[in-house]
Design a protein around this nucleic acid. Structure first.
Lengths: 247, 247
DNA sequence: GTCTAATGTGAGCACTGCTCACGAAACAGA
DNA sequence: TCTGTTTCGTGAGCAGTGCTCACATTAGAC
């Protein structure tokens, strides 16, 4: 049976297996600290080894190579973000669709600001030559699933206009996600969900990567007000609005 | 007098100055090739030197360090994208506002797909510890200026609803860009411009960084159809729409 | 108690950015 | 034309990286 993130790790039987799991966890913990402090590009297996008081070649007994360590950290980051978002969104009354959406947006942004290097690791430019392994797609889909669920819920509540017809070519283009959703969700809603997702991602990334420099004032209040306004605009465009963008 | 991108280089007087300019250009050219092939993270001064048949320490006579070389490539990339977008958008009739917007979007995406590493360099996660110098803000603003201009043009044509009133806090948050625009452009329009810019950026980045994997079908046709649809949706949300998102 | 497999060690390879002392060449001023 | 000053190319060297490998040690299985 394969191990997948979120699944509890098999209880180690022997002392050796226990030690192995423990040391692997220590490596991951240390790597996490280094990542948060220095960023993914500067993550060094040798430095992690030094911090743990082991010789550099010893970590290769636990981690096949640097890319594998990064992959673990990527899954970690996806799960961290996904958990934060699910908690935040889950605390809002189910029928307050706009608030659910805004809670999701702000949760993503708050997490990103608190964990900039982790965010950059999962949503920044991929390390060249690095291909995201299949293990990441589960954790990676947690946030978009939340967004699409909000839109689908709004739809089923009957409080939204009927899904708009979508051009056949466009509908065909999203066949993969449509299949993933069991083919039951109208393409228009999936497209809305994706649009909100990429709009949210764009706004957070812009802020985090410094593209709002000389555009939006630097303080926390200004940045939050700007972000909130723009996310309300996105919601509006999705049929999630409360009537007007202005607050 | 300081040299700024876009400004013609002073004609070199002596043979030495001419040689210097030439070798610096060769270094930049080679670095550009390496960037396109291997990505920014793998850009190596030593490798560039090798390609040019010079010893590694010699390039330090022309480029202070690796970061400076990256900065030149960043300015280069901004200008390349800006030029491509301005050309594309400039070819559309001035009064076809939606088409101007879509031309801009598709130009950004086309350039990004053709120059993925350059795109990642300017819109991906910034290299840790690297702060974008002031020289980049001019070239960096070319695309957003195009977008905001479209929206302002539409506004002045009288074919759009009046700019919506904006919450005072939100309006204050965009003081920097508002000042940059001379204080004449209504905040609502600037906010729309920024929203379109970050929506466009989000969509292109998602595709380029592989976040559409298992979501949107892989082929060129599917990806283009999806992108076009989403950009039309963004346009819609901006008041640039032609009436309906469906084509 | 023995045998095998897992684990830790340190040397080593090839690479990186960057510095520095050293000559050689090119320029500028007298 | 001669002299003095910059500028430029060279190669060695430092500190760091990822990763491999032969070797010793140790822990678990039988």
């Amino acid at each position: 049976m394969r191990q997948t993130a979120g699944m509890p790790i098999d209880a180690p039987r022997t002392a050796r297996e226990r030690a192995r799991a423990e040391i692997t966890a220590e490596i991951l913990d240390t790597a996490r600290i280094h990542l948060a402090r220095d960023g993914a590009a500067a993550l060094s297996l040798r430095a992690v080894a030094r911090d743990l008081g082991m010789v550099s070649s010893a970590v290769y007994r636990y981690v096949p190579n640097r890319d594998a360590l990064l992959t673990m950290l990527i899954i970690d980051a996806y799960d961290g973000l996904g958990g934060a978002v699910e908690t935040s969104e889950g605390a809002v009354a189910r029928t307050d669709y706009l608030d659910r959406f805004l809670a999701t947006c702000h949760a993503v942004r708050t997490w990103a600001i608190a964990h900039p290097q982790e965010y950059a690791l999962i949503y920044g430019s991929p390390v060249p030559g690095y291909a995201a392994p299949e293990d990441t797609i589960g954790p990676a889909s947690r946030v978009p699933v939340v967004l699409i669920t909000i839109i689908v819920d709004l739809q089923s509540s009957g409080r939204a206009p009927r899904p708009a017809p979508v051009d056949a070519g466009v509908a065909a283009s999203i066949a993969p996600i449509s299949d993933f959703a069991g083919g039951q969700v109208p393409p228009d809603l999936l497209l809305r969900g994706m649009a909100s997702w990429s709009g949210l991602f764009g706004a957070v990334s812009f802020e985090l990567y410094g593209h709002l420099h000389n555009v939006v004032a630097e303080g926390t209040a200004a940045r939050t007000a700007y972000f909130d306004h723009q996310m309300r605009r996105v919601a509006e465009g999705l049929g999630l609005g409360s009537g007007t963008v202005a607050r």
